[in-house]
Design a binder for these strands. Structure first.
Lengths: 212, 212
DNA sequence: CTTATTATGTAGCGAACATTACATATTTGG
DNA sequence: CCAAATATGTAATGTTCGCTACATAATAAG
């Protein structure tokens, strides 16, 4: 069968452009007009390739998770639980302070509020945030099982705490916080970890950049 | 001069209804249709009383700050810096877990993302969040001046940390976190305060409710 | 009661929204 | 070179947006 005229734009590049718009505006405030303009295509091409605006957002979100959050995998894979926490926090500082990124995390900004029509996407983002917190909880629980954690650390509670701090840093960054502001938040956060004094302070900034 | 037909609705009550819509939907996603329906009035009455949608939001926001955030003033007025932190955190738990409130804080949810047209309101909310953090910083700095704080506590950094945790709790609550989830976050957060072991744990829930 | 004044309800304004019909342009298979 | 197939650009769909003109209803002053 003949395949006719080939697509005139690169799918991944167009997705990256769409991602930046969604990241800046949020899901519902990003208009199809702004999206198509950023992608360099016309509405019919968008709907042919992605179905509708929701389909485009889901594809852009998948690309965000695959490309932009590698520092998270790098953190989960840390040799120690304490190392994971540090990598998560310091990696987030670099991620949120990166001038090439819109301020704040897409998972937080994407659909903080929405109309009735946007509830599916909102729940999707909430679900992903919960899965991320669950990963931290699992890693901490495994560390506790292995006797790595002090008795007073409750893996579930600490995972919730870390997730909240990360979300709060995202809100802070969206409000214009600088790298130094975020760094200070991380420094105080690490004091909630009982072993702080016993653990040598490690600057994982280099590693995080390598990991992402 | 004759005053003609009197207003048929109570201003404060209408503002409260509008506030609930803005709180649930955010500034831009709250439509005038939904607002007027909730307020029990028609568009011309809204525009006669508040000028436009932005004016209505500003009035609703003022009412939110005056009526809904008294626990914050109660916290700032605490006799000790440590007491302020506890009141802030525990008060926020009750505030965020209150089933009568939409989930999350209006200052965080109101305009996390927006179009070009909503930037003024977004900056207004960011400015208020910064002022709140500044109040905590001032209180901590005064405590440090008075020798109340341990040397390792940096008032500025700790205020940023607390502000981030509160914002993170708001995001967490917007994602469906329960009172118990939020309570656990608070418990871990307080461990970042060096005097934890030396200070008797105080349940300030009653006081917070009284204060709000 | 008359009249001036003000709020109300209805109905509609232009603009922007997400989405799509349709004709055109471009490429591959035969 | 032709024909089938597919993406493109233009322009329009119906709907919702914030906002307002206008006529009416209801009140207070004289």
């Amino acid at each position: 069968m003949a395949l006719g005229r080939p697509r005139a734009f690169d799918l991944d590049h167009a997705l990256d452009q769409a991602l930046m718009v969604f990241w800046r505006r949020g899901y519902e405030n990003a208009s199809v007009a702004e999206l198509t303009h950023a992608m360099g295509i016309n509405p019919p091409s968008l709907y042919a390739a992605f179905g509708n605006k929701e389909g485009l957002f889901r594809k852009a979100l998948a690309r965000y998770l695959a490309v932009r959050t590698k520092f998270w995998d790098f953190a989960i894979a840390a040799p120690t639980a304490r190392g994971m926490i540090e990598r998560l926090l310091r990696g987030s500082v670099e991620f949120l302070a990166d001038e090439n990124n819109p301020p704040g995390c897409l998972l937080v900004r994407g659909a903080m509020t929405c109309s009735e029509m946007g509830k599916d996407i909102q729940n999707e983002l909430i679900s992903i945030r919960k899965m991320a917190e669950h990963k931290v909880w699992e890693r901490l629980a495994a560390a506790k099982e292995a006797g790595e954690l002090p008795a007073e650390v409750d893996p579930c509670a600490f995972a919730g705490f870390i997730a909240a701090v990360l979300e709060g840093m995202s809100v802070h960054a969206a409000g214009g916080a600088s790298r130094e502001d975020l760094q200070k938040i991380v420094d105080v956060t690490l004091k909630a970890w009982p072993e702080t004094a016993a653990t040598a302070p490690i600057d994982t900034r280099e590693e995080c950049l390598t990991g992402s």
